[in-house]
Amino acid sequence: MRTLAALLALMLVISVSAQHGPTPVKCCDSYSSHVIPIGKVVSYFTTSSSCYQNAHVLKTVADKEFCVKPDLHWVKKIVDKLDMRT
């Protein structure tokens, strides 16, 4: 009987976890107007295609994130540098 109760409890936890799905998509409402120094950026990612605006999100050594336009020259240099590391 305990085994059955434990199995049902486990199934309940799994089903509740599955309903929440993956973490939400990060989208940018606006672009940062600051030029971030290339030495301060440690990583980046591109926002989802389901977002209203296409953007790169730059993450700095201070663990801050900045939404930037991907077509800017200085952004392309940072992205190229980071891509060369991996």
Rank of each mutant, 00 (worst) to 15 (best):
T86Y: 04
Y52S: 12
C67R: 10
V41I: 15
T3K: 11
I36H: 07
T3C: 04
L8Y: 03
R2G: 12
K26R: 13
T23I: 09
S15Q: 14
V68N: 02
V57C: 02
M1T: 12
T60H: 03
V61R: 13
M11E: 06
A55C: 09
Y31N: 03
V13M: 13
I78S: 01
A9F: 15
W74A: 09
P70K: 07
A5I: 15
A18F: 07
V68A: 06
A5D: 02
L58D: 05
D80R: 13
G39E: 13
V61Q: 11
V16N: 00
T60A: 02
C51G: 07
T3S: 08
V57G: 02
S15R: 14
V42S: 08
L7R: 10
K26Q: 09
V13C: 15
C51K: 05
S17G: 08
L82I: 11
V13N: 01
T47A: 03
D80M: 04
A62S: 14
S48R: 10
R85Y: 04
C27K: 12
D80W: 01
S15W: 04
A9R: 07
K76V: 12
P70L: 02
T86C: 00
G39A: 08
V13R: 06
S43P: 01
L12E: 01
T60C: 03
A6H: 09
T23K: 14
V79C: 05
S17N: 12
T46N: 05
I38F: 00
D83V: 02
K26Y: 00
I14E: 04
P22E: 12
V68W: 01
T47L: 01
L7Q: 07
T47D: 00
S17Y: 10
D71W: 09
K64F: 06
M1L: 12
M1W: 08
H20E: 12
G39W: 02
S15A: 14
T3V: 12
D83F: 00
V41H: 05
T23V: 10
Y44Q: 09
V41Y: 07
M11L: 15
P37S: 12
D83L: 08
K81E: 06
D83Y: 01
D83P: 01
D71S: 14
H20T: 14
Q53A: 03
N54Q: 11
